[in-house]
Simulated scan of single mutants.
Amino acid sequence: MDRTPNFQPAVYLMANHKGGTIYVGVTSDLSKRAWQHREGVVEGFTSRYGCKRLVWFELHSTMEHAISREKQIKGGSRKDKIALIEAGNPDWRDLFFGLNS
Rank of each mutant, 00 (worst) to 15 (best):
M63F: 10
K81M: 00
E64S: 12
G88A: 04
W56P: 10
K79L: 12
V26F: 08
P90S: 03
W56A: 08
K32T: 10
G88P: 00
Y12S: 04
R33E: 13
K18A: 15
K18C: 07
G19T: 09
G25A: 01
L95M: 04
H37N: 02
A66K: 04
G40C: 09
T21W: 05
G75H: 09
M14Y: 01
Q36R: 14
A87F: 00
T62P: 08
K79P: 03
D29A: 15
G20W: 03
K79E: 15
F57R: 08
V42F: 02
G19H: 09
A15P: 00
Q72P: 00
S47G: 03
I73N: 01
L13Q: 01
M14L: 13
T62M: 06
K52H: 15
K52V: 14
L13D: 02
E43M: 01
S31W: 13
L59T: 02
L30F: 04
V55H: 11
M63T: 05
V55Q: 07
Y12H: 00
S68Y: 13
T46Q: 07
A83E: 15
M63C: 07
K74S: 14
C51M: 15
W92F: 06
P90C: 08
N16Y: 14
H65S: 14
T21P: 04
C51F: 01
L95Y: 06
P90Y: 08
T27C: 06
V24W: 03
V11T: 14
K52L: 08
A34S: 08
K81R: 07
V11E: 02
G20L: 04
N89E: 06
W92Y: 01
V42N: 14
R48A: 10
E58I: 02
V24D: 09
G44P: 12
V41H: 13
A83Y: 06
G40T: 09
H37Y: 12
H17R: 10
W92A: 07
H60K: 00
V26Q: 11
D91W: 07
S61K: 08
K79D: 15
R78T: 06
V24T: 10
Q36A: 11
W92L: 05
T46A: 04
D91C: 02
F57V: 10
T21Q: 12
A87M: 02
H37Q: 07
Q72C: 09
W92E: 09
Y49I: 02
G40L: 05
G76C: 13
L84Q: 06
A83H: 06
E39V: 10
R53T: 14
S68R: 15
E58G: 08
Q72M: 11
